[in-house]
Design a protein around this nucleic acid. Sequence first.
DNA 1: GAATACCGCGTTTTT
DNA 2: CGCGGTATTC
Length: 780
Amino acid sequence: MSDFEKSLQTDLNKPQREAVTTLDGPVLVLAGAGSGKTRVIAYRVANLIYTGKCEPWEILAVTFTNKAADEMGDRVHKLVGIKGQDVSLGTFHRTCSQILRRWGQEIGVPQEFTILDGTESAIVAKRCMKALNVDINHYDPKAVASRISGAKGNLIHWREYQERAIDRYEKIVGEVYEAYESALEHAKSLDFDDLIMKTVDLMEDSPKTLDYLQNRYRYILVDEYQDINRAQYVFTQLFAGRDRNICVVGDDDQSIYAFRGADPKYILNFEEDFPGALVIKLEENYRSKSSILNAANALVRHNPKRHYKNLWTDRGEGDAIQFKYSRTDEAEAIDIAESIETFMKVDKRLYNDFAVLYRTNAISRIFEEVFTQYAIPYQIIGGFRFYDRKEIKDVLAYLKLVMNPWDTVSLQRIVNTPTRGIGEKSFTKLVQVLTEHDIGVHELSYREDLWIQLGTYAANRVIRFCEMVRTLHEEKDSFSVFELTGRILDETGYSRKLEQSDTIEAEGRLENIEELMGAITRFDEAYPTEGLPVFLEQVALIQSQDNLDRDADSVKCLTAHAAKGLEFPVVFVAALEDGLFPHSRSYHDPQGLEEERRLCYVSITRAMDRLFLSAAYSRSSSFWRTRGSLGGTLPSRFLAEIPEDLIEPVDIASKMALRGDASIPGQVPDAVRETVKAEYSELDGDWTVLPGAYKFAEQQGELATVRANRRQAKLDEAPKEPSGYAVGQTVCHPKFGEGKITKIQPAGGGDYFLQINFTSEGAKLLSEEKAPLTLVEEEE
DNA sequence: GAATACCGCGTTTTT
DNA sequence: CGCGGTATTC
């Protein structure tokens, strides 16, 4: 028996082995959290190669994150050696981008296309809306862009979208969609959704290419199958359509991307798509202690529609999960910082062993502050990314424009950075000329016949700029990316401008550019044969998780979304407050709440040995301040869904927040209140010891009364004016689109609540005063 | 027409 | 607080 065969026996449990050794035909692996799915995929790939079922390059494995792909690559490499490098391993977006770069010309995709991120897509949408005279106040460009994105995720082209549009809002979106597509086409640019959709188009419209791809990739593996959208689903169907050698791995309990079109129905329907599919459940969890796993199971059991499974573990019970309810967000962070320090001393842990998880990026700020004070090394994953900084985006825009001089999005960004006297009017005119004659800026520099169309005001300056781009474009292939960037910084005057301004801010920007140059050097060294297009592709598809430095000894702070697929010995899930986690934007409809619950499940199941849950009575982020909230947050309802014996409150305040019926303001049981008072007097009234407890008991009661009184007073104040709307009228909202008013009720203070049933977004309750609504005249 | 100085708004999660 | 939009000056 070879070493590999031995390891199949020793490293895998029975269902895992079955998933690894059943190589032909469709296989669905329902892999619970921590059940070793990465291992299964890696072994399966290795086994395909080992048994000679196919050559390494005939395997396509698709994951959702670069990090998962890298990890998979490492493992395969360890198992089968150098051959493993020939396996096609990547994210959906990267895989599609590579396919399009090679075969996209079949359907007219230019070879050196630019990839637009979400912000850039919105910029294009906005530009198109302006050109079409669509009122920006009436239709929010970001919302319109996101509708377009949604349509593309469902493989709906603009023509079909227009045919299906049922109200004026959608008709406008349809028009913008059409203009947006032609703008992208001229700019030789693809947005994120195009990467998938155009690849599907390619396979559907070019039988030759489909045939080639199906021959080339004979064994398909898809990870995180619960998170695919329709476009990605069709992509996998096309690949596996002929040989049906497809293995998908996923967990419907960890589906957390519905907001971007992910639909777990695809994993739930796999057996219908591929009759006779082998279904394997991986239910043994190798990651967490049972105290943690039981809590996670109990929580997710509150979701009605799921594939049944029961995760269990052999890792022992472990310590109880602790819950701490702090008075302020700062106190919460301090508490976590001190816990980390204690752990370091007592358990000899590394900073690397800890992670702080939260629902929204905004929460990270307080941890940054407190960890800095405590001199705890930390890394914020996601949030403000390095590549989101202005100066980095500027330099990258120059690189993009040099690679693709048709790219008017990058052009817009840097044509006047540093200022060269080319303002909005000149820019609009420039784009008009470029689009009309379908040329890039480099070509304009020798099209003297067109110069007159630029107008007289800025023509000279525009032409000088085009000349500069042309030179760089023509010479780009004889330089490394590093050299090219150096020339750009130099010749465009970008560096000079920053050096001259002599401010601290400019200094920081120069430092960041230095850092970018470092990254570029590393790229040049790692991929000496690849040039600008591959570099730009890599940058465009960078993910927040990619910043995660596994080797650096630091506490990791990240959102629950970013934490997916990762594990940590000690996990703190912070800011578990109703409205934050579950988030207030989601918890009004059952589906949203279920996704929040899955997100919480994902957070909990990241923990291996210890799990700490926490919430704060008041949170001082700008978000709450500007809303003028009274504070007095309530612990997340998810805490109440975990059985009492699995969570141990660390003090009275926490106990009360957890066990006192805190979900109903003012209903803290008297018994709990008495306990607090007793304990409080025992401690000699030392407020610093139990800061939240007594206040909580008092204020929950008082606050509730104050709030109820205010609400009543407001309602008593009869509206002077009747509502400007009537039931049955159709209104338009810049973000939500069109909808019919189904109910009007006084909100006090002369305002009204309108219940509106939106065509595409469902029913919402909006304030007449605050919501930017406009009445839509009925047609006919 | 462009550059600069101010005001107001908005923040869920991300490829 | 930072960005995008508007008002004012060059």
